[in-house]
């Protein structure tokens, strides 16, 4: 469709926990420089897609390619080493470690870059620089989300996966997080995020996927999806 090169693609993915299958043939791809967002009702399997990419759950069938390399059945540590970086929805910082220690842990797979990356992160998140010696558990929700994202960016990320980065945050913080996401993206990191706040998320995204019951329902550019009548009725309207 575009001339942009493809960073990651998920094709025909069937996956689930134990015996239960949750994803029934998902397809999605992320191109260089894009923000792609996945929305859908609760239980649609949005977060499960991210867990499948990370190798945290059983994959029955399908493929996940990162830079044309299949990463299905690769251990999580290796996947992260290859450049997929992930921020879970909740419980995403080590609460008893300081901010700086959190970031150092983020660099576990490439310790040689720790100092360089730390400087970059403090530039990107000046607030964190002031709090580097504070335990992450003592920070506010929005700041924790910043720590979590900075921690994820400590690896040489080819792509950043965000699981509901604004869940449970006040509107003020929500906007701040979305603008941070935009900044990270402008620095050259493609982002795949799962979101509940569909309208705002689609607003910053280049493209969006809508999942229902573990399968693709709609795909399109962010603007098109916001303006789509059916999408608006299903997901956006009820939220306003």
């Amino acid at each position: 469709m575009t001339s942009q090169s493809e960073i990651m693609s998920v094709s025909n993915l069937f996956a689930g926990y134990g015996e239960t299958e949750i994803l029934h043939g998902i397809n999605l791809n992320v191109n260089d420089g894009e923000i792609v967002c996945v929305i859908g009702p609760n239980g649609a399997g949005k977060s499960t897609v991210l867990k499948a990419i990370l190798g945290q759950i059983n994959i029955r069938d399908g493929s996940i390619n990162l830079a044309d390399q299949d990463i299905v059945n690769t251990p999580t540590t290796e996947i992260i080493k290859k450049g997929i970086s992930y921020v879970p929805q909740t419980n995403n910082v080590f609460v008893s470690l300081t901010v700086e220690e959190n970031l150092e842990m983020g660099a576990w797979v490439n310790p040689e870059y720790t100092q360089k990356k730390l400087r970059e992160m403090y530039e990107l998140f000046p607030d964190l620089s002031e709090k580097r010696k504070q335990p992450a558990g003592s920070l506010s929700g929005g700041q924790r989300q910043m720590v979590a994202m900075a921690k994820a960016l400590m690896v040489n990320a080819k792509i950043l996966l965000l699981d509901e980065p604004t869940a449970g945050l006040s509107p003020k913080y929500r906007s701040e997080i979305f603008s941070t996401i935009k900044t990270i993206n402008n620095n050259g990191v493609p982002i795949l995020m799962v979101e509940q706040n569909a309208k705002q998320a689609l607003g910053v995204s280049d493209r969006g996927y809508i999942l229902v019951d573990g399968a693709n329902r709609h795909t399109g550019s962010g603007i098109d999806l916001i303006n789509d009548k059916e999408v608006a009725r299903m997901f956006l309207g009820s939220r306003e």
């Binding site: 992260i80 008893s96 576990w108 797979v109």
Partner: peptide, 23 residues
């Protein structure tokens, strides 16, 4: 030390440690 901090991290949350890439 790096390994000592990682011990504290795993003690905090083994799941997060795994998805952070800690061995």
């Amino acid at each position: 030390t790096r390994i000592g901090k990682a011990m504290r991290a795993v003690s905090d949350s083994p799941d997060l440690a795994k998805v952070t890439g800690i061995d």
